[in-house]
Design a protein around this nucleic acid. Sequence first.
RNA 1: GUCCCCAUCGUCUAGUCUGGUCAGGACAUGAGCUUUUCAAGCUUAUGGCGUCGGUUCAAAUCCGGCUGGGGACGCCA
Length: 428
Amino acid sequence: MVKVRFAPSPTGYLHIGGARTCLFNWLYARAKKGKFILRIEDTDLERSKKEYLDEILESIRWLGLDWDEIYYQSQRFDLYKQYAQKLIESGNAYQKEGAVFFKYQFSKIEINDLIRGKIIFTELPKEEEVIIKSDGSPTYNFSCVIDDATMGLTHVIRGEDHISNTPKQILMYKALGLNTPEFAHVPLILSPDGGRLSKRYGATSIREYKEAGYLADAIANYLSLLSWSPGNNREIISLDSAKEIFDIADVNKTGAEFSLEKLNWLNSEYIKAKDTKTLAEIVANFLKDKKFLPENVSQDYLEKVTQLFRDRLVKLSDFLDRARFCFYDDYVYAPDTQEILQNNLSKQIDALAQKMSDIADFNKLAIETEFRATCTNLGLKTKELVHPVRVALSGNRVGPGLFETMEVLGKNEVVKRLKRLIQYWQST
RNA sequence: GUCCCCAUCGUCUAGUCUGGUCAGGACAUGAGCUUUUCAAGCUUAUGGCGUCGGUUCAAAUCCGGCUGGGGACGCCA
């Protein structure tokens, strides 16, 4: 049975690259009906932080991934020491200054990488290496080998940056008489400047994307598209579908640049595809974290506002400034509305306000009918009134469809805001 | 410096294993339609096999050199 792992180190948040490695491991495990385990590589006592661990686990869950087992290397130090002792006894390692050094018995090493095919190493950069530090903790290459072997992992799927560690690890498996797993090295995710994805390029942690209003399934979808493709020109694919068809051998060898534009597009597609109720819940949670909503907003009203904006949101954070007028009436008319406001239409707006307040059932259709009729009666083109009214209601020259907006705000609020514009004209 | 990986539109990719269909799709960009602003949507356009050589009737596809890009060389992981 296939058994794979994701092995994060809690010395930082879960970043895009790690998340993609995690995703590919998960996808492969689920595709093969195998096990996916999490191994926390917290051997660096100095730099490992609980805060990071919590964040990593939360990010993985948020993405929609789950794990079958979880291990902590910090709880397995005894095991590593035992294996180190074995190596000392067999003459493959020795102790010096409190540390244990492993002696590489190098010969040509051939890796049969599931993604890259044959990789041949004809030499190693060093002849020996610390496997147990003088403080008793294991080094990466050693604990990794012991764990991959003792946890019964069948495949090691990890980033390309580990290729050069692989021959060293194989030498350790050999010295210990342990079976080596299969290896698959996935390409790195590059930043738009072609280099390594780094802090220099904006957001790198999953948490930051969550906070910016990206949906978990959009991120997961986007990540799955980097260096892998479901085929058939498919771009939008759920984890459920992906796990049916994913195979590690189909992953390509080329590094992929992270494209915020494409992520944005996918995110807006996912926003549009959600049913309003579900989306409103996601929006509610998002806004709650931002402490954005006033006290007494009903779920029903939030759903209506969500419906109003859903088709023009790229990410949830767009909601913050654009939909603010639906919850607060303290907005001022934006500078770029001057052009629209310089034409004083007090009389016409007043007439409109009257007509609006006469509508019994204040719904989009009734509003539009009455609005257009009023314009005709006043000898105005519809757009001549649409623009100032939008400014009156939202403070902005752009926004969702006006009649829908009016329905959502409700009659009283609409009339109140129209009067406010009239007052504004009178005071200037 | 040494070792290793990689190479299809600006970007993500299908096609490469098993040579032969105008190199297909998506994002982005341009234009048009629609319109109540902004989006969205629809139509459409621009744009690519890094380079040199070899094998072959035929090369994006197989082989080699070059060039370019990336990664690794910690008592970090």
